[in-house]
Design a protein around this nucleic acid. Sequence first.
DNA 1: TCACCGCTAGGATGACCGTCCTATTTTGAG
DNA 2: CTCAAAATAGGACGGTCATCCTAGCGGTGA
Lengths: 194, 194
Amino acid sequence: MGNKGEALRQRVIAAAGELFYQQGYENTSFRDIASAVGISRGNFYYHFKSKDDILHAVIDTRIAGIKATLAEWDKKFTDPGQRLHHYVDILLHNQDNITSYGCPVGSLCTELAKYDHSILTDANKMFVVFRDWLVAQLKLIGVNNNTHRIAMHLISRVQGIAMVTNAFDDKLFLQQEVKQLKQWLDDEILKPSH
Amino acid sequence: MGNKGEALRQRVIAAAGELFYQQGYENTSFRDIASAVGISRGNFYYHFKSKDDILHAVIDTRIAGIKATLAEWDKKFTDPGQRLHHYVDILLHNQDNITSYGCPVGSLCTELAKYDHSILTDANKMFVVFRDWLVAQLKLIGVNNNTHRIAMHLISRVQGIAMVTNAFDDKLFLQQEVKQLKQWLDDEILKPSH
DNA sequence: TCACCGCTAGGATGACCGTCCTATTTTGAG
DNA sequence: CTCAAAATAGGACGGTCATCCTAGCGGTGA
């Protein structure tokens, strides 16, 4: 059975994903991944046909993970407004990693935009999953106009915070900005005043 | 005379800076820079002692350029509010490059954070120059509280816009967000209402 | 004219890269 | 127990990288 192989494949994807996040894709070699997983380099090509292939697998796995997380939130929180708050709270929950390495989605897209636009299109799908979910939540709240733009705006705000936090190595900034962004969410989106 | 050498040095810095921006630092080789300038690889080490050395020179030159630009704005616009608007307008003026390659400062910091924290500290100085200038403008307007936080917030907003525009290859998004950010600037910072 | 020095060219070096190949071990169905 | 298939190990290959080295260029002052 390909069961054992499948398990190893998953371990490789997990290790590669972490290394790509911490060191960047181009800066992570096959040897890095192999030694992290504890297997030989040659064995690699039995499971993946190229380095790009691993990246694609990493992206696919991340997308599946994002979808699973969002589905879990849909179950856990009945209020769409609460769900939006939870989206912003991702920053808080991952503040240590973000301070050290930035946003896993954003920094990967930034890197790929520099030299491989075909994979960038795939990586961008991670954003699209979030965006579509955000749009859905906004519609549930009763927002009917500009849902797409508001969702993109939210992603943009979160990305800006992650990137500046990383560049300045400033966790306090992240915490302050999260508070401010959640306030904006309450005032401008969730309140029915205007 | 060291005149000819100095001229070449400046040409190398300009070409390297552009390539680092378009392709990323790690992904740009000496051969790339050499052939862009039209000199041999060996000649390189007469002017720079390492690749890191070139990056440092690129960063220093960019910092000088930023300072010169800000000084020019200080002369050109007497109103600090107008200057703040001009900061946001950088996005608009460079929208084509940002769509293709992201923000030159932001994307470099994102890359360096993945593997070289000592140079990241230098690269971050580019942000610091902007930040200090923004703080000065805010104080000129009469804002006395949280000037540092507001300046950082502005940088964060701009960075988020640049990064999402690049990741989504969406120039229209940039234009809409610039309009929205300038509106926020007017309503929340420049107006004396609260 | 000549010696000098700022400057340039390009081959050599050793390390590392992604990838390929082949021999060997492990596994599980009959 | 048998044996083919799945899985693994690690050396080999060609290429590119940053860096170093040395021979030669061209202009300038004596």
